[in-house]
């Protein structure tokens, strides 16, 4: 029997000692797609993955994976045979080398010796880890550890791959390679469910996604569909001097802008960027004049198309800066 949706969750809830970590969420993931949960830390992303993979019990609701209903005895183990899991922290065996880590993981899925050794070699090659295959896992860099953990997750060629924050805490180059590997896997037919708080990662990889905040899905849909929600916005981006954004806040520029242009919303992005969002078209000259009045030189001003980040901020009310701070915190 072919199932159009490989993952189906209905009213999924998780309570921990009176605290509701996941609150009645429902979603479906089609076979062969990349679906992401986007949300800040503590939104319930990992708890949802834990319920989907069988590491956490479901307080209420139902899960079906590949047609296997978790409520039925023995179904979870059948479903686990078809899934691969890459947790948010690399959890392979520090004392085993890369090759033996992969072989051991393959054996957990019942793969025979010749088959698992062949597959381990293939994956080491595909992930550019051939030279490190005989080195103990503890001697790997963070990026290499992440890649090997991803390889371990797909050693048994699962139909569904769960990736929890796949690029958090690793260098830019390794993150780029991992994103490329995820795309390759998906092209080869693997369904991917990933959680991230990197908006640009979700935008780059996914066709459909859900915004999750405080255990609830506040919006879900196709990328294009979600982006449409920001189409009525006019956004002007101002690039200031180093530290200019901070000075703008100190000098209460946002309040001055809001007073002069009542239908606008002002957001600070990083050190140098101020974004003015409005539901009506904006003129650049009076806006730049306000910056000049505050002795804030404007190096660049441009009208932007709304990004997924703008849509996320608009729907969830969570500032992008908070997500960025969280991701930097996690790196440290």
């Amino acid at each position: 029997m072919v199932h159009l949706f490989i993952i189906e969750a209905e009213g999924l809830t998780k309570n921990f000692n009176g605290f509701t970590a996941v609150d009645g969420i429902s979603f479906r993931v089609a076979q062969g797609e990349i679906f992401a949960f986007l949300g800040p830390n503590g939104a319930g992303k990992t708890t949802t993955i834990n319920m989907l993979t069988g590491l956490a019990r479901i307080s209420a609701g139902t899960i079906r994976l590949g047609g296997w209903d978790y409520a039925l005895k023995g179904s979870l183990k059948k479903a686990q045979q078809r899934m691969g899991i890459v947790p948010d922290e690399s959890n392979l065996y520090e004392e085993l080398d890369g090759f033996n880590n992969l072989c051991f993981c393959a054996s957990l899925y019942g793969m025979g010796k010749p088959e698992r050794e062949k597959r381990a070699q293939e994956l080491l090659k595909q992930f550019n880890l051939e030279a490190a295959g005989k080195r103990p896992f503890r001697a790997y860099s963070k990026g290499m550890k992440r890649k090997l953990t991803l390889a371990a997750g797909i050693i048994h060629q699962p139909e569904v791959l769960f990736l929890d924050e796949p690029t958090t805490g690793i260098d830019v180059e390794s993150a780029r390679q991992i994103r490329s590997l995820i795309q390759q896997l998906n092209k080869a037919g693997t369904t991917i469910f990933l959680t991230t708080h990197y908006i640009e990662e979700a935008e780059r990889l996914c066709r459909r996604l859900a915004f999750i905040v405080e255990g609830r899905i506040v919006r879900q849909g196709g990328l294009a569909e979600l982006m449409e929600e920001g189409q009525g916005d006019y956004i002007v981006q101002f690039i200031l001097d180093d530290g200019g954004a901070k000075h703008a806040v100190e000098q209460e520029l946002p309040a001055a802008l809001a007073a002069r242009f009542p239908h606008t919303e002002i957001n600070i992005h990083g050190d140098r960027e101020v974004r003015v969002t409005s539901s009506v078209p904006l003129e650049l000259a009076p806006l730049i004049e306000i910056f000049s009045n505050y002795h804030l030189p404007v190096f660049e001003a441009k009208i932007m198309r709304p990004t997924l980040e703008d849509v996320f901020v608009r729907i969830t009310g969570i500032e992008a800066a908070r997500l960025k701070k969280e991701k930097e915190g996690k790196k440290g």
Binding site: T53, G54, K77, Q81, P87, N91, Y93, L108, Y109
Partner: peptide, 14 residues
Amino acid sequence: RQRSFERLLLAPIS
């Protein structure tokens, strides 16, 4: 502590 035990719990064996 190393979370490698989770890997075993997620394996399709009883």
